[in-house]
Design a protein around this nucleic acid. Sequence first.
DNA 1: TATAAGTTTGAAATCATTTTTATTTTCAAG
DNA 2: CTTGAAAATAAAAATGATTTCAAACTTATA
Lengths: 141, 141
Amino acid sequence: MMDPNQITTEYVGKILEEKGVKPSFQRLSVLKYLMKSKNHPSVDKIFKALSQDIPTLSKTTVYNTLNLLTEKGIVTALNINDTEVLYDYIFKPHAHLLCTECGHVYDVFLDDSFSGIKEIDGHIISEAQINFKGVCKKCHN
Amino acid sequence: MMDPNQITTEYVGKILEEKGVKPSFQRLSVLKYLMKSKNHPSVDKIFKALSQDIPTLSKTTVYNTLNLLTEKGIVTALNINDTEVLYDYIFKPHAHLLCTECGHVYDVFLDDSFSGIKEIDGHIISEAQINFKGVCKKCHN
DNA sequence: TATAAGTTTGAAATCATTTTTATTTTCAAG
DNA sequence: CTTGAAAATAAAAATGATTTCAAACTTATA
């Protein structure tokens, strides 16, 4: 998790600019929301949450922004749940666990031997997505 | 890879029955096709291929069958490509690599320390899906 | 053979995402 | 300051994969 106090407009704007993305109000809002999220919101959740403060916001803009941030490697699109795509700010590389009971998606931090893989069978690896399914500790008691 | 000679109707039927799935002609056809596939076919590819031999086949049946086989743990639905879902018969647990150049999806066999994870942070893990992105050995030369 | 249960089919509906087009904003050049 | 082009946003319409639904068919069973 990120320190919430760190998530200022300046800080978020700097992240965007470093990746060559113009820090518009909408983009700042979407990324800031993602960084503050403890869960992994869907497009719809992001849209509904931000709409409260930004009544003119269009869902298209949320889609555009998330696609752009994904291309730039700032966020990841999670396909762990087959009903909707979830988005996640990449603070530190990690895996995910979907609880088949409650549906919650947890962050799971594996040791470096997993995330450090750069080559397999002669293929060059640039990105890894590790999704577990199972029963979370809250549900199996 | 499976030995192609092993993929007989009797053998495929046995796999279905063991999981409590009635081995109808359509289900046998779909599973047999998946077992013989060297790549990871989409619903559409499966449908088109089987339609040649089974002209009455409905796409709904392909969807129904794949959903059923996935529920029963006989096949996996791969969300590695964001345009379409790919299906894969689970012969031996393995990871996948999507080549960002040619789009091909490779099977990647990791050692048991990966697939053997049964518990993390108190959560019980029943299933793991590991998807890599990168450049395959054919493309980075 | 009759009946019920399970399976398949094809059409229609759904729904997330993309495309398209129009409007607005940004920002550099004059 | 204006002006005008480029970029960003908005809203509506289109797309397309997947699901739902009702009817037809098949299979198993009494």
